[in-house]
Design a protein around this nucleic acid. Sequence first.
RNA 1: GGUGCGGUGGCGAAGCGGUAACGCUGCGGACUGCAAAUCCGCCAUUCGUCGGUUCAAAUCCGACCCGCACCUCCA
Length: 480
Amino acid sequence: MGISVYNTLSRNKEPLIPRKAGKIGMYVCGPTTYNYIHLGNARPLVVFDTVRRYLEYLGFEVTFVQNFTDVDDKIIRRAREEKRPPLELARSYIEEYFVDADALQVKRATIYPKVSEHMDDIIAFVKGLQEKGFAYEIDGDVYFAVNRFEEYGKLSGRTLDDLQAGARVEVDDRKRYPGDFALWKKAKPDEPYWDSPWGPGRPGWHIECSTMSCKYLGPSFDIHAGGFDLVFPHHENEIAQSEAFNGVQMAKYWLHNGFITINQEKMSKSLGNFFLLRDILKKFPAQVVRFYLLATHYRSPLDFDDEKLEAAGKGLERLQTAYRLLQEKKSGLENDSRAGETSPGAQQFRDQINEARRKFEEAMNDDFNTALSIAVFFDFARTINTYLASGPTGAEALPALKEGEELYTLLGSVLGLQFADKKAGPTDTKRAEEVEALIQKRQEAKSSKDYRTADAIRDELKKMGVILEDTPGGTRWRNK
RNA sequence: GGUGCGGUGGCGAAGCGGUAACGCUGCGGACUGCAAAUCCGCCAUUCGUCGGUUCAAAUCCGACCCGCACCUCCA
C-alpha cells in the first residue's frame, strides 16, 4: 500500500514513486527574511515538516532542503528603513526564524542554502542559460526568454496567450516579450551588488531555487513544495530555468499548501492582515498552533481566529489526557503485586492498537490527510480511555499498555506532537510542594466531611491554575 | 476578462458512487459528597440551488447562485 500525493503538475493524485528506492529528495521554498514569520508562513513549515516526518516514519531517507532568500528587494528596502546592512538584517531574521520554527517542533532541514552564499553558482547558472540561448542581456539586466521554453505554463496551466490576456504585467519595453522575467538585475546606486559578467547586480527572484535545488538535490529530484501562490510565477519560472538548463524534468511532484485566511480573506503581508507567529505564541502554546494547522487538510484554506485555536486546544488536551492516564496506569501496574491475574481486555486492546496504526497510515497515505489521521487519534484516545476504565490488571495488561503507549507516542511524533506530562517540572518544585500541602489539607477536611473547607481549598487551587481530580487512588492534580 | 479552488449539523472538519467520521459546543445519563477527568446516549432523513445519469449521488454530468485565490511582491 503506497502513498499517493496530489501533484499540481498533473492536477491529480498520483502514487509517490521515489526516483531512487528508499530515498526522497525534497525542496521547500523558505521565507524571505525581512521580518518575523507570520502564521501564513508557518503553515508550509508545519505541513511539509509533517510530510517529511511521515516519509521518515515509513523508512525513507529524506534529504530536506529549504532555502533562505536573504538577498531581495524587500530586504533592501527594510534595511534602508532601519539603517542596517541588508545582509545583517536578513541574518538576524534567519535567527529569529529558528526560534519560531523550533517552537513549532519543525525538524531542522538537511541543508539551509542561502542566496548570498551561492552567488558563483547562480551566476554560472544564468550564464549557462544565456549560452544555451534561453536568456538575453540588456544593459546589465538578464532576462529569461519565456517563449524559448516550449513547455512554459505547464505547471500553472496557462499559455503565453493567457498570460498576455492578463495584461497586469508591468510593461518594460526593453523586454522582448512581456512575460520574460529577470534572472539578473543590475544594481541601482546604493544597492548591494555582486560582480558578474553583466556588471554589478543581484539575482532575480526565481533563479536561486533553480540553482540551489540543483546543487543539493541534482537536476531531477522528487518533491518540490511551497505555498499555492508560488505556483505562478515562481515555480513556473523555476521549471523553465531548470529544465531549460538541465534538459531534464526538475521535480517530479509539486505540492502546494492552501492559505490561511482571516475572515475568509488571504492573510498576507501586502494586505497587512497578518498575525506574527510570535504574537500568537504569546496567547497559545506552540503545540496547539501546530495541532490546529494539521487539523485541516493542507490543500484547503484555513480560516484563523482565536476561538478556533481555543477549540483546537481543547481537542489536543483530550489527546494529552488519554496519554497521561495511560502513563499513570502503566506505572501503577509496574508496582502491582497482583501481576499474574488474567486480564480479559488486553487482546482486544492490542487489536484496537493495530487498527489505529493501520488507519493512521491509510489516512497519511492518502495525500497526507492529517485531518483524518487526527480523527484516528481521537478514536485511539477513546480506545485507551475505555480500556483503562475497565480496570486492567495483571501480566497481560502491562505489555499491552506499553504497546499502546509506544504507538501513541510514535504516531504523535509523526505529527510533531508530544504528550509529555504537563505537571510541574523540576523548576517548580517549590510550587509543587505548596500544592501538595494544600491537597493534604483538603484531604483532611474531606475525611471529616468538612466539604465547605475542602471546596474552598479546591477553589483556591483553581485560582492558582491547578485542577484537581479525585480518584479512588487519591487526588491527582494538573496545571491548567 | 482568463485560470483554478471551495460551499457538509451551532462552530470546525473528514468523506468524493453504496446510504453522513472526528473534534469543539449544547443536552440527558453513569461515576463523584460536589466537582474534575472518563464512559454511554442524543444533536444533519441530509451535504449551496435546480435539473440529469444510475438499482444507488454529499460523491458523476449540466446549469445557476455565493465565497475565495492566482494572472503583480506574497507561504
